[in-house]
């Protein structure tokens, strides 16, 4: 009985995002749709970094590196393997086009997530021995290493960038990914294991004395965070249709850190901050060349307002 209800629920979610996508592409100006999609991607990135930075207290600044892994891996998959799979699906299995691209992009997202998670594991294992500032610098360094490695890979375009990526990202996929990220990380931090993350943040030594395997949990948080960063990167790649490593510099990582810091420890806060900080530069286009100045001012003001609230509660 329970499993039937779960299946029905999944179908309902799929239908909901499917119709939402149809409705929005028909009635919303593509410019606003574009901003909405960027906001959604940033929500995924902010929530996934929230798990590492805010919940587990490990200050990571390498999120853009994991995004890059996911973006390039998925783009490589849809661009090189995608056409083969497409002809297999449509000719051998006689799938309609819609299902074919559904499966290809679905695979691409999973591959992106898994490869990023793998990168997160490799990076996390040695780096998470460090604490505080040292950890921040080390993750920043690793993020840059990933970026420069991709820059020197000719199969993904190297310095000229990766062109002709099919545009698959839409509100349907975005909705599913945001929902999925929210559910996984949201449920995780409220579970027993989630308490372990909190315990590590509050006092690592005490947590270890309580029998928590701190390395395991720290690397775990890092890997899960990297997984969703990869998914976010994949969505971005298939939205812009073009990738260049300049989109994944440490400045990008800092943007995500700012969202998490502004949003506070809660997931809702991070998500809201991500949305506000995506909308803000667009709203401020009004100021033309002073846009980024005003943006920075608003950011300072928001941080001050945040700090005050922090004190009062």
């Amino acid at each position: 009985m329970k499993s039937i209800r779960q299946v029905l629920f999944c179908v309902a979610i799929l239908c909901f995002f499917f119709f939402l996508n149809h409705f929005l592409t028909l009635y919303l100006n593509p410019y606003y749709l574009q901003i909405l999609i960027y906001a959604g991607i940033n929500v995924i990135l902010a929530i996934s970094l929230n798990l590492v930075n805010a919940q587990t207290g490990q200050f990571s600044m390498g999120h853009a590196g994991f995004m890059a892994v996911g973006a390039y891996a998925s783009a490589f998959f849809t661009d090189r393997v995608g056409p083969l799979l497409h002809s297999f699906f449509t000719h051998v299995l006689a799938f309609p086009d819609f299902f074919s691209s559904f499966f290809i992009f679905g695979f691409a997202l999973v591959i992106a997530g898994c490869l990023s998670a793998g990168a997160g594991f490799i990076v996390g294992l040695p780096v998470l021995r460090l604490r505080g500032d040292y950890l921040a610098i080390a993750t920043l360094g690793f993020g840059e290493i990933i970026r420069v490695m991709i820059l020197n890979m000719d199969v993904v375009g190297g310095a000229r960038g990766f062109t002709d990526i099919p545009i698959y990202t839409n509100v349907f996929w975005l909705g599913l990914c945001v929902y999925g990220t929210w559910m996984v990380i949201g449920n995780l931090i409220h579970s027993t294991k989630g308490r372990a993350f909190l315990a590590i943040r509050e006092d690592e030594v005490a947590a270890e004395c309580m029998g928590i395997h701190t390395t395991k949990y720290k690397v775990g948080a890092f890997v899960i965070g990297a997984f969703f960063a990869g998914v976010g990167g994949a969505l971005l790649a298939h939205e812009v249709g073009y990738l260049h490593t300049n989109s994944f510099t440490f400045l990008r990582s800092i943007e995500i850190v700012v969202m998490v810091v502004l949003g506070g420890t809660s997931l809702v806060g991070s998500a809201l901050a991500a949305i506000v900080l995506t909308l803000l530069p667009e709203v401020l286009r009004f100021f033309s060349e002073y846009r980024m100045v005003v943006y920075s001012l608003v950011l300072i003001f928001l941080m001050l307002a945040r700090a005050k609230k922090w004190k009062s509660t």
């Binding site: 939205e239 073009y242 530069p281």
Partner: peptide, 22 residues
């Protein structure tokens, strides 16, 4: 109508969409 793209490819796309669609 001059739009800034912050030297980023993804912002360039947003700027162009804004110019054309809005």
């Amino acid at each position: 109508i001059v739009e800034d793209d912050q030297s980023k490819p993804e912002e360039a796309k947003t700027a162009v969409v804004k110019l054309i669609k809005r």
